[in-house]
Design a protein around this nucleic acid. Structure first.
Length: 289
DNA sequence: GACTCGTGGTT
DNA sequence: TAACCAAGAGT
């Protein structure tokens, strides 16, 4: 199975810039943060722009946090931009400007959780770590557990399985990225293309006749009318403005004053917005300026 | 564990 | 077309 999957990967993998052999660990880290819950096609152009502007952690660390948020554009979840900026500063202060290699040191960076720490340690430094993202979890659920979807949250059994499957030699990283790529291109959530799957012959879910998902349906992501929508509109106005924004301009984005104020207060509490006074708001600047 | 947090393409 | 979904993290 390992050989079949890795061979498939070398033939079918997308040519993504952060997979290039000359991509720096910083480039890998930036890509992994951007790819958290955001599809590849939207990340790619923004990633190129970030690498051009801030080719090393120190370059971003010296920048205003608001500029990171602005350059984040419409990737979504702008807290990630703020945390990536904070991670760059932590890399400068704790690691002399060099992205750390160990899983534990990566995990300690802002915005870096288990997945991202394992991915960077593995893909940027060749370390041996089980990489469990939504793609890998779905592939393992189908191939080994015979279920259409994995559990709602990662289980100890999943982690054990992923580590058992992980090659003990230096092919561990390519095995992990191949599993991810298979989940992204073939073993997709909605309509898997089993005819193109290199491990279809061994897939428990397929061999069992594609049984339906029986567990609880995952909660939908409500959007219309939520605070997230209001936050999104407020951030869009601030991002697209070159300077501070008068309160009445922000007020225009949402009719319900109670919800609007709650959303704005939340953004300020999150550090995504900086109030200059009661009537003027802007993207955050560094404490010294 | 349950919830929150953006955005836009796909079905 | 409304619903689904996408390389998660933090609380």
């Amino acid at each position: 199975m390992h050989d079949a999957l890795i061979t498939w990967y070398h033939t079918h993998a997308r040519d993504l810039p952060w997979r290039s052999t000359d991509c720096t660990p910083w480039g890998v880290l930036v890509s992994e943060i951007m790819l958290q819950q955001t599809p590849v096609p939207r990340v790619e152009p923004v990633w190129h722009e970030w690498m051009r502007r801030w080719p090393a952690p120190a370059d971003l660390a010296a920048e205003e946090p608001g500029e990171a948020i602005r350059a984040w554009g419409r990737l979504g979840y702008p807290r990630r931009a703020l945390r990536l900026h904070a991670a760059a500063q932590a890399i400068v202060s704790r690691h002399d400007g060099t992205v750390p290699q160990s899983y534990d040191e990566l995990l300690a960076l802002p915005g870096v959780g288990d997945y991202t720490a394992a991915a960077v340690a593995s893909f940027a430094f060749g370390a041996r770590h089980a990489v469990l993202d939504t793609n890998v979890r779905r592939v393992l659920a189908r191939a080994f557990s015979g279920t259409r979807y994995p559990a709602n949250s990662t289980t100890a059994a999943e982690r054990r399985l992923a580590e058992e499957l992980l090659p003990t030699d230096d092919t561990a990283p390519v095995w992990s990225v191949a599993l991810m790529e298979l989940g992204a291109l073939v073993c997709t959530a909605r309509a898997p293309r089993c005819g193109a799957c290199p491990i279809a012959a061994e897939c428990t879910w397929r061999l069992s006749g594609f049984p339906d998902h029986d567990g609880p349906a995952p909660r939908g992501q409500a959007w219309a009318g939520t605070d997230r929508q209001v936050r999104g509109r407020l951030m869009a106005v601030l991002r697209d403005s070159t300077g501070p924004v008068p309160k009445p301009v922000l007020d225009a984005v949402w009719p319900d004053a109670v919800q609007r104020e709650r959303a704005l207060d939340g953004l300020v509490a999150d550090g995504l917005v900086e109030p200059l006074d009661e009537e003027l708001y802007r993207l955050p600047t560094s404490p010294s300026s």
